[in-house]
């Protein structure tokens, strides 16, 4: 019964605010608290920034939001076939500031993981649940 919102933005920093607002609107529909909404916005902005900084991403960033009950799942991926994942390598490595975004995201969302997308490399998937 999940409902899905797909957003595709140019892979440019000035479009990240649109992603933030869109996700804020979706989280607000789920009756997330204002704090959780801010956290989701920040996490999505970080994920987009990672995607923008990836060395060989495509022209777009795709953001898919799945709403399922009280659970919001956001997947972020570069748009190009075979594009480098948005900084997947930093899962095991770290220390350069490029990698810190993922740790920030981890401390904001309930679940964060990388998933394989056929022919597309990896996408960053993060989940936030309505606080009970």
């Amino acid at each position: 019964m999940a409902e899905t919102v797909d957003l595709r933005i140019p892979r440019k920093a000035e479009w990240v605010a649109v992603a933030r607002l869109t996700v804020a609107g979706i989280a607000s529909r789920l009756h997330f608290t204002i704090e959780d909404i801010e956290d989701v916005k920040l996490a999505v902005a970080e994920a987009c920034t990672n995607a923008i900084q990836a060395p060989d991403g495509g022209a777009f960033i795709e953001i898919r939001c799945d709403v399922d009950g009280d659970r919001l799942r956001v997947a972020v991926v570069n748009s190009v076939d075979g594009a480098a994942p948005p900084r997947a390598e930093v899962l095991d490595e770290e220390l350069s500031v490029d990698g810190l975004g993922v740790f920030l995201i981890r401390s904001l969302m309930d679940d964060v993981e990388y998933e394989d997308v056929p022919d597309r490399g990896k996408q960053l998937v993060m989940v936030k649940r309505l606080a009970s």
Partner: peptide, 13 residues
């Protein structure tokens, strides 16, 4: 774990 991994959630918290 590296210190930054460990420290980030504490600082954010």
């Amino acid at each position: 774990v590296e210190f930054t991994t460990y420290a980030t959630p504490t600082i954010v918290g």
